[in-house]
Design a protein around this nucleic acid. Structure first.
Lengths: 274, 274
DNA sequence: AAGCCGCCTTGATCTGGATCAAGAAATCTG
DNA sequence: CAGATTTCTTGATCCAGATCAAGGCGGCTT
């Protein structure tokens, strides 16, 4: 019986068809034949534990990777021990596009929790592309998606206020989790406040304060890394608002002078001084 | 004689081999046969004049484009008439990757001056990729490059101070111009201060002040849109310095208290109060 | 050459979010 | 389970860069 289960487990591991991420992963949109071929080149790695690296900066590029379960932080170590957290990868998402041009990874990837990934050796993938148009097209689409993602993030960092950044981060996460069959309203963050703030180009303290404020405003409930989004429409509102740089409005303009409490005050408080 | 010149001109227009951008454009790294085929699918557009759009947001995706001469601004119009300037395209550079996933352009492209481009109809390009491995590989490389570019910009916007942003912008421009056979030290900006500031996530006034400061510090000479970089090593220094967010140092720390003149003061001034 | 208009610069002031400084909770460790 | 560490929160203060407000300088039109 034990062996049976083990066998089943291994089988489950090996087949894309049975993988619960099949509908969001690379195999999406491939024909049965293409899928069969693709599966043959997949190199399954043994599960990684928290803190273990999938690849380090400068390592030669070998594969594109798909996360099967767990989550990964992609970051760029900078001179002076600092880092820039680039993105977080959820199950069914790919990584490793960064090294295609130069042949070496330009960033590092580390597991945030116990994580398992599928590796697609890149040279074999490219070869396969020449045989199967569908795969090549799919790969191009994924490249495009990668680029579109970066665009969004750019937009965010160039123009949005701190609150819009955090709102956007949470909504994005919520969306991606939903697509993958998880709850869109309730989830656990696998990354630290430090990682989040770094990723959003903010200070940890700011993120912490924003979480507190959002909670006070009834937008969400947060207890350490556990998040429940209570009022998604209103969170979306925050996200739409552009940054102080470009914006005219934000809050009732009439209140602005009165709102001397500073930026960390609740926005919903009726400004007594007005 | 006139016809002769005209004929020569047209010929020059049509052949990648004779195009002065051949060594930085898509054809780079292709075999003669591949190049021949590629040239057959190129759709040459008539030159665009300043302000004319190559594509608008939401338009269906037809082609990848290569700029042959002139320059293009890629931007995302946002609700409320604002825009986010995404990047500037120089001769020999490609654009149009943004629409591959969704089939529609997610941004708009407008000529900053008289500009001519080559269009590679995308479906024909993909088809060609199946015949010629070299082309497919090249395309992948370009995708990768596009992604790497975005990474750099992200890094910049997430972490760098205003002065580092402008320094980086100028150095990047200088580099790209050099690669294309133009002077790396002296050039004319084809974009307005507004475009630059928007691109860098800053206010116009800040960019203006920074130009003034850089000039006072002897780093460069600027007269309206004409730029001469005088001290590139020192500009590179500025760029390396990370933003206030992450950094510890910046200027002699001892001077910080003394430097009450505010951020727009010259950095080289010996702080009298120390 | 005078008047207009769209860029660009410069000065003064304001503010969102960083930084500094303490705790409070979890988590780790022996 | 006490102490040590790491992670997170909260408060006070500070400052880089935004915003507001005037000009200045070309270039264009008539």
């Amino acid at each position: 019986m034990d062996r049976n289960i083990a066998a089943k487990f291994i089988d489950y591991q090996v087949s894309c068809k049975d993988c619960c991420m099949a509908n969001v992963c690379l195999p999406l949109g491939l024909s049965a034949v293409e899928l069969d071929q693709l599966m043959k080149i997949i190199d399954r790695q043994s599960p990684m534990s928290r803190g273990e690296h999938l690849f380090q900066i400068g390592e030669p590029h070998k594969s594109l990777y798909a996360v099967r379960s767990g989550s990964i932080k992609v970051y760029i170590p900078t001179e002076g021990g600092e880092e820039q957290v680039h993105r977080f990868i959820l199950p069914g998402e790919l990584l490793g596009f960064d090294a295609i041009e130069g042949g070496k990874h330009t960033c590092a990837a580390v597991a945030l929790e116990t994580t398992s990934v599928c590796a697609f050796p890149y040279h074999r993938l490219e070869k396969l592309c020449h045989t199967f148009q569908g795969l090549d097209h799919e790969l191009h689409r994924l490249f495009g998606k990668e680029i579109a993602n970066e665009h969004d993030l750019l937009q965010l960092l160039a123009k949005k206020s701190a609150e819009a950044r955090l709102a956007s981060f949470l909504l994005d996460l919520s969306n991606r989790l939903k697509k993958r069959g998880f709850s869109e309203r309730e989830f656990n963050l696998t990354m630290s406040r430090h990682d989040i703030s770094n990723h959003l180009g903010l200070a940890v303290e700011t993120v912490s304060r924003l979480f507190a404020r959002f909670q006070n405003e009834g937008l969400l409930t947060v207890r350490r890394r556990h998040i429940q989004l209570q009022n998604m429409p209103e969170i979306k509102e925050l996200f739409v608002n552009v940054s102080p740089t470009t914006s005219k409005r934000r809050i009732a303009p009439a209140n602005r002078k009165g709102n001397i409490g500073g930026s960390y005050r609740l926005r919903k408080v009726k400004a007594a001084q007005v």
